[in-house]
Computed example of a mutant assay.
Amino acid sequence: MQVAIITGAGGGIGFATAQKLYDMGIAIVGVGRDREKLKKLEAALGNDTERVATVSVDIAAEDGPQTIVKLAVERFGRIDYLINNAGIGSPKPLHETDDETLDRFLGIMLRAPFRLARDVIPHMKPGSAIINVTSTFAVVGGRRGGAYSASKGGLQSLTLHIACEYGAQGIRANCVAPGVTATDMVRERMNDPGFVRMNVDMTPYPRLGEAEDIASTIAFLCSKGGEYINGQTIVVDGGWSSTKYLSPEAMAAK
């Protein structure tokens, strides 16, 4: 039985990914800070104690990665997949970002994935994979990106290193870069005309991304079909980052 560690598993993309991988027969180690959200994940997966373990931990804490890896090895005896998904939003531009905010973003979205991958790799065998959830802000320039862009861009570069350094051992590393995805946080911003203009009106597909879209891509990279994909960034954004699309409504706006 294969085993996947998923950070940020209490909601959104992480929750959907846990469900998708569980349905593929993979055992899940769900990681999050909110114990109540993790209980909802356990319930969604049928309270299957033989194939599901969760741990409430701050991944940025000094003992965070060790706690996660220890649980996975003690419960299941192996680690096949690491999905570094946990993240935070609402960044500010460079000139508005203080050191505390910078350290917080880098700590959660770059330092923690770095340390967790470092602790996981010794337990991985050929056929294993690390999937880092980055962002379109790691692919193109984005306003207000600041520390978020720096973190996600660094994570993309780390992925390339892992793919090169450990690919010969049969350990792959790839990025999945979501565009704006319809999570609770994003839905709250749909009343902001500027947000809608920037994201909805510039996406040449008639809906926003869903957590299921990202989870399906991650699941593919954990499947036999994704076995020869290494060192890549798969952007899941409906064409937002690769086109110059503007909706007819936006084109006609004054």
Results as ranks from 00 to 15, higher is better:
residue 15 F to V: 08
residue 174 N to A: 01
residue 3 V to I: 03
residue 102 L to Q: 02
residue 68 I to V: 10
residue 71 L to V: 00
residue 21 L to R: 04
residue 202 M to S: 15
residue 151 S to L: 08
residue 84 N to Y: 05
residue 213 D to G: 07
residue 207 R to L: 04
residue 192 D to L: 08
residue 180 V to F: 12
residue 241 S to F: 14
residue 15 F to Y: 12
residue 166 Y to S: 05
residue 201 D to H: 10
residue 166 Y to R: 04
residue 174 N to D: 10
residue 185 M to W: 05
residue 112 A to F: 05
residue 221 L to A: 11
residue 229 I to W: 01
residue 245 Y to F: 12
residue 252 A to D: 02
residue 184 D to T: 13
residue 242 S to I: 12
residue 99 D to M: 14
residue 166 Y to F: 06
residue 109 M to D: 02
residue 220 F to T: 04
residue 133 V to F: 07
residue 92 K to I: 04
residue 28 I to Q: 07
residue 70 K to C: 00
residue 210 E to Y: 14
residue 150 A to K: 00
residue 7 T to C: 12
residue 143 R to I: 15
residue 95 H to Q: 02
residue 240 W to S: 08
residue 62 E to D: 10
residue 209 G to P: 09
residue 107 G to E: 04
residue 53 A to R: 09
residue 173 A to P: 01
residue 135 S to F: 01
residue 182 A to T: 11
residue 20 K to D: 12
residue 233 T to F: 08
residue 200 V to L: 06
residue 32 G to L: 13
residue 53 A to V: 04
residue 97 T to M: 06
residue 158 L to I: 14
residue 146 G to E: 11
residue 124 M to V: 00
residue 92 K to E: 11
residue 46 G to H: 04
residue 118 R to S: 13
residue 233 T to P: 05
residue 217 T to S: 01
residue 163 A to I: 13
residue 124 M to S: 07
residue 206 P to C: 13
residue 235 V to Q: 09
residue 192 D to Q: 06
residue 159 T to V: 05
residue 72 A to K: 10
residue 109 M to P: 00
residue 121 I to Y: 11
residue 184 D to G: 06
residue 124 M to G: 08
residue 71 L to K: 11
residue 69 V to A: 04
residue 146 G to V: 12
residue 103 D to G: 00
residue 189 R to I: 09
residue 69 V to S: 05
residue 184 D to P: 11
residue 241 S to C: 14
residue 107 G to D: 12
residue 14 G to I: 11
